[in-house]
Design a protein around this nucleic acid. Sequence first.
DNA 1: TGCCATTTGTTCGTATGTATT
DNA 2: AAATACATACGAACAAATGGC
Lengths: 239, 239
Amino acid sequence: MDAVGDGVTRWRRVADGIRAAIGDGTVADRLPPEAELAERFGVNRHTVRRAIAALAADGLVRAERGRGTFVSGGAPRLAYEIGPRTRFSENLLAQARRPGGRMLRAAIVPADAETAALLDCAPGTDLHRVESIREADGVPLSVATAWYPAARFPGLVAALVETGSVTEALRREGLADYRRRETRVTAERLSAADAEHLSSSADGLVLVARAVNVDLSGRPVQALVTRFHADRTELVFRS
Amino acid sequence: MDAVGDGVTRWRRVADGIRAAIGDGTVADRLPPEAELAERFGVNRHTVRRAIAALAADGLVRAERGRGTFVSGGAPRLAYEIGPRTRFSENLLAQARRPGGRMLRAAIVPADAETAALLDCAPGTDLHRVESIREADGVPLSVATAWYPAARFPGLVAALVETGSVTEALRREGLADYRRRETRVTAERLSAADAEHLSSSADGLVLVARAVNVDLSGRPVQALVTRFHADRTELVFRS
DNA sequence: TGCCATTTGTTCGTATGTATT
DNA sequence: AAATACATACGAACAAATGGC
């Protein structure tokens, strides 16, 4: 490098400087332009951009081309409760949010090894695969992919389209009730396709919840992978 | 720019090219040096670096200074089960993993509003704040911050240091048993400090689990924020 | 409507620092 | 000790989106 004070890189010191300015309220909403920051910190504009990229990665700021770079005001997350009787609509209505959503795709696919194990069926078994988006107050919240044994629920997709409700569609197919057996949660980066569906910036995060729902006798009826927008959601588990 | 084929930026096309090469096995373990990639794709080395940074952000590759850039072979995640009686050591031993860890810091701090609400005490109440790292087979798994009412457990920190076990330390302080009331899960980017503790690249992800543990009469005894390394962990909730 | 200044995004060039082999 | 390879930093130019006039 060149004349560096300590062992810390310049872009880190710029990032810390901006972070401090946000912390003490010196910059409330919008950051000065990159060119001005570069001059003020006595570094190249690239160095400022590297610093801002780091802050953006921490979710502290958000850069918008042609407009500027803004301090991201953290909106409160929706608390999505997951338990034995998780139902999307009930969950949202309990928090005075309007549930919504739509089906993206539906197809019949052969079960791969992983899904077959979850649904306790033979690999290759015909499954309905249904992809859908779920919204709260019109804001996309999650993208979900669900698999159902096709032989057991032959008219499922039509019922889903007609009712718009998983619970109601399964009821029409003869399933009185179901409950969630287990949920496995991981975190991933938003894929480009999901970013579009969730109308989010491309560098967002998702909470991935993999679940199995079973009927009252314990037979799996649905394998579910839901990708929740991490900035808008918090998953709640009660013990 | 200059002669661009379509509306896609060059670094994205380079990234897609590398991604494809990884996908079809053309590059199995190690990427060619940046200079060679630059020449092969007919772009500047900076453009290659931008592409590699994006792939690294997706967790697909991992750059090591002086050595090269490597395809990160996804190790299977540790399934960390969370329930009413979550105990770290038991959890790991059940999967034939060796539990470990160490305390990072301990201090007495006044309760802020949020923690006070969780622990059902007045804001400003003295709390032990204990930060620690937990490991599986010597690999850092999570960084945890715990708050305990100091008045109720005066000798807690000494007991934690001596026993290395939360359950055992609380028992010495007169708490026979405790259970988890609820867990709230979010996803965040790894902070610089946590990245060091978890010996991870700076652009990793964490699963943040916020929990409250209560005694048998339902009184909160511990507020807990655990940041799990998302690449190494999967949280499992049974209903 | 279109033009223009502002601001972030991309790309190239060049040089030097630092860790690994 | 030398070569290799990634990391940081500066300079310059143009592209693309936004917003005001």
